[in-house]
Design a protein around this nucleic acid. Structure first.
Lengths: 162, 162
DNA sequence: GTCAGTGCAAACTTTTTGCAACTAC
DNA sequence: GTAGTTGCAAAAAGTTTGCACTGAC
């Protein structure tokens, strides 16, 4: 928890910095949402975040505000938006680094890979026509579980740790 | 056009092969959709495909059938599904290869990169816990046009060549 | 003839918008 | 006090489902 608090402190500073001179107000909702986002491991949807806010954090906030705040946090580069499933999913990302994700085409499971080579590869690329803010490498395939079970169940939403 | 026809011939063979022994029927809708998909460059949404079918191909087909058929073609590995925007986008991909896409965070533009190095990098990866069927590397960032214009217009849908 | 496929309408899910009340500045 | 923010309700957008009809096998 103390580590989470540290992350939140940094994140809150960055958000304050981002807001500066932009006519963007520091509302309690925005900082409480950021706090929960920092405390939530893995990726989550708006609905999941809404439930966490109400159940765990006992903080009432509307879905509309969550949508708006996610956009703000994304612009401030404090979270990353994944649109792998029908509903967008987000994750806290205080120190953006190249993400390597395994996405199961059957169950929607997402797993992250550690990789230094991809970073080297990325640094070699010359992209004058494009400012890269966040590279994400998705591997679409089948996870071990779905490899074994040959069930024909429908592709579900992205799973997150509950 | 002759090249497109060739691609369709190969695709139709693959689809037929995929359907074999699966109780999946060869309907004219499915093959006509596949033909148009093979003739359509770049990425497209269900709605865009629906318009092309009606306007250019003069072939009446419902959106429901397009959704179903896209699922079938995806399973048959003849198309790739991108979920970068609110609406899913698809592209024909007869010979799947690692895709490297630049996605503009502002206007939603998608551009493909040529890259052989990413293929080498991928071949080095050992993924025993995962069968990779399609690697896609997305660069999220800003395209040249949005770099210059500092307009604050909202992020729009994925653009495709019209 | 059977049952998978099609297409309409309706339901459902996710996201956006309009608007009144609120509040950070 | 002003204007950005919140949150409700409603609309919009994308996708799925129920069901009757059709047609591939």
């Amino acid at each position: 928890m103390s580590e989470c608090t540290d992350i939140y402190t940094i994140a809150a500073q960055r958000l304050t910095e981002y807001m500066k001179g932009k006519n963007i107000r520091k509302t309690p909702e925005r900082f409480e949402i950021l706090r929960i986002v920092c405390q939530t491991p893995g990726i989550f949807s708006i609905d999941e975040l809404h439930e966490i806010m109400e159940q765990k954090a006992k903080f009432q906030v509307s879905r509309v505000t969550l949508f708006n705040t996610m956009k703000l946090l994304e612009d401030a580069k404090l979270i990353i938006k994944h649109t792998l499933a029908r509903a967008a999913h987000y994750e806290c990302c205080i120190n953006p680094h190249p993400l390597v994700c395994m996405v199961c085409q059957k169950c929607g499971m997402v797993r992250k890979l550690e990789s230094s080579k991809i970073e080297n590869w990325l640094s070699e690329q010359k992209c004058k026509q494009f400012i890269i803010t966040q590279p994400v490498l998705y591997f679409h395939g089948l996870c071990r579980s779905c490899m074994v079970k040959s069930s024909i169940k429908k592709r579900s939403r992205v799973k997150s740790e509950k």
